[in-house]
Amino acid sequence: MAQSAAPQLLRPVPQAAPADGRRVLLTTGSSDAHTWNLVHLQLFLEEHGHSVLNLGPCVPEELLVDTARLTMPDLVVFSSVNGHGHLDGLRAVRALRAEADTRGIPMVAGGLLGISPEGAEQRRAELLEAGFDGVHPDGTGPEVLLERLAELIPLAALDPAGPARTERVAA
């Protein structure tokens, strides 16, 4: 199945984000066709001054990694509601961590990650182990992303010779 190379934008990303605005890459599982969660998160993050690149539904790992390499976002948000988020999420985060360029980009997951509530804790542990920086259980409000974004400093603010990974600022 051919993949579209061009990521879809719900609306044009602002040329420059506000001073404390961050650049977010919004993605979902390669088998997840749901988009309302993505549309809502995009609108929400944009309303709070962040710029969002929304990859739309069914994002293959290569598209995620390629786009991440190209745009170097401050945060990758993986949102999935079809029950495969656990399986897809593992593949996605491993792919991102496998590439030197994108290894350091923070990535968080949220939504309905399994097909039933059973085993949620184990799934969470597995996902964190595989490289997610945060895994939010179903029902967590999007505000949690604002907190996480506020903790980050943009890549551009770092010493170019420094590590690629965005550092957390001590609270």
Partner: peptide, 10 residues
């Protein structure tokens, strides 16, 4: 359209 990214032509 609603469920993926396969080009519509395909």
């Amino acid at each position: 359209l609603p469920y993926g990214r396969t080009p519509l032509a395909e």
